[in-house]
Simulated scan of single mutants.
Amino acid sequence: MQQRQLAENAAGHSNFGPEVIFRTLGEAPTTAPIIVSITNGSDGCVNVEWRAPPISNGQIVGYRIMVHKIGNGAMREWYLKGNRQALCSLAYFSEFMLSIEADNGFGYSPTVTQKFTTDQKSPEGPPEMIQIRPLKSDAVMVSWHEPLIPNGIITTYMIYYREIKSQRPYTTVRLLVKPDEPSKSFSYNVTKLSK
């Protein structure tokens, strides 16, 4: 905007003063950005894309992205210029809350939020606390707990066994885990062992 001033008294008014150019204070965006997509990308990363708020009250200069891990309160934050980003180094097979706010230089917009879950990854380590207990001359009970860091839902356990110093191939037992199995401890009777 432009402004000019003059002074006036009982005898008349003065000439105009110099022209002043000014800008009024702006207003933060009044609507939230729009999340377009959240997809699992490369190992440990989630790709996020969003659009500017419909009512931005000026040009958007950046976005504040926040990711909260649900359940433990851990939070990470980024400030970005563009409309897409790969968010990396997130825990595998975990639930997160994504929050995005737009910044137009005068303040932040309302927040848009969306939950997402990261991809699974192979378990980090073998089953825990493996124990073997003889049952009779040709049978043992094998028990174990799921790996300390399963990185997903365990669907199968494989038991391989053979006689010590045997040249024969291992005998393999494939055990499927029920999808709704709440237990983290398992056991299985291996029978018909060679004496």
Rank of each mutant, 00 (worst) to 15 (best):
S137H: 07
Q120T: 02
M158Q: 14
D119W: 00
R133H: 09
F96H: 09
S166E: 09
S166W: 05
E124Y: 06
P126R: 11
K165R: 11
S137P: 00
I149L: 15
V173Y: 07
Y161I: 06
V173W: 07
G105V: 06
V177Q: 06
P123D: 05
K121F: 01
Y161T: 08
V142F: 06
S122R: 14
P150T: 07
V177T: 14
P147W: 08
P126E: 13
D103V: 04
I159E: 02
Y108S: 07
S143Q: 11
L98V: 03
R162C: 03
T171Y: 08
P169F: 11
L148G: 10
K115E: 13
P169D: 13
Q120A: 06
Y157Q: 03
L175A: 10
I159D: 01
M97K: 13
I100D: 02
V173L: 15
K136E: 12
K115L: 12
Y160A: 14
K165Q: 14
Q167I: 10
Q120F: 00
A139R: 05
G125K: 12
P127D: 05
P123H: 02
S109C: 08
M129E: 15
S143A: 10
T118I: 08
R162G: 04
L175N: 09
T155Q: 10
G105D: 02
T111F: 01
P110F: 05
T117Y: 00
A139C: 10
I100V: 13
T172M: 15
D138S: 11
E128I: 02
N104M: 06
R162A: 07
